[in-house]
């Protein structure tokens, strides 16, 4: 059984303040330049963690259960959520326990499927998948893992498209949200300011 990272024990605090969790985002600017997940490739992290095609497919499956394409607002695909998350993971060499938690959670979800429903998660029927989701949500680890994925889905819903999610402002449009002004650009986005904070410019 994988462990819940200590800082995620208090999920509420993490949700409201999480830079230590994903300092990664040297990311954003760089992230957008990285060729990302394709259906026939493995994604290799700079650490020792890899996301296989199968793991990526499981992640996509779970994201679509957490945030279904039900006609109410943008879907995971519309928001580019999966690529957004994979990009964050790719950039996260300084905080390995972050990608570790997400990737371990993928494996845990599959193991939970096999244990409870006697089948790989990718082979479950729609009803079985619904049942698995309920099992995961009732589990402390599974609930935190799903909660983290929802938070990242939120980011893909409302962060500036500068960061590679919600193309054409589909998230803001759905919510009727007016963003603050001015919006970030390459001169003051996370990548630019992260370099300033670390005195790299």
């Amino acid at each position: 059984m994988p462990q819940i990272p200590e800082h995620l024990a208090n999920l509420e605090a993490w949700e409201s303040s999480r830079r230590r969790f994903v300092k990664s985002v040297l990311l954003a600017g760089v992230a957008l330049q990285i060729p990302i997940f394709t259906s026939c490739s493995n994604i290799t992290f700079k650490g020792n963690v890899k996301v296989s095609d199968e793991q990526a497919s499981i992640l996509n499956l779970v994201l679509n259960k957490l945030w279904p394409d039900d006609g109410n607002g943008p879907s995971i695909k519309d928001l580019n959520t999966q690529n957004y998350i994979l990009n964050l993971l790719l950039q996260e060499e300084k905080h390995k326990y972050h990608n570790k938690f997400i990737v371990e959670g993928i494996d845990w979800a599959n193991e939970t499927s096999k244990e409870n429903l006697k089948a790989d998660i990718l082979n479950l029927s729609s009803d079985e998948l619904d049942k698995l989701m309920e099992i995961m949500i009732e589990d402390e680890y599974g609930s935190k893992w799903c909660s983290v994925l929802i938070t990242y889905t939120y980011e893909s819903l409302i962060l500036d498209p500068e960061y590679g999610a919600q193309p054409n402002e589909v998230g803001w449009t759905w919510l009727g949200h007016t963003p603050g002004s001015p919006r970030p650009d390459s001169s003051n986005n996370y990548d630019a300011l992260f370099k300033m904070v670390n005195d790299e410019v």
Binding site: D185, N188, M196, V197
Partner: peptide, 25 residues
């Protein structure tokens, strides 16, 4: 660091999601 006014946009990624204005825990 020394940010100037032009560095301040209304960016949740910087200000609240990654807490870049605070020291790194």
């Amino acid at each position: 660091p020394w940010f100037n006014t032009e560095h301040f946009s209304k960016d949740e990624m910087v200000a609240t999601r990654r807490d870049l204005y605070k020291s790194d825990l």
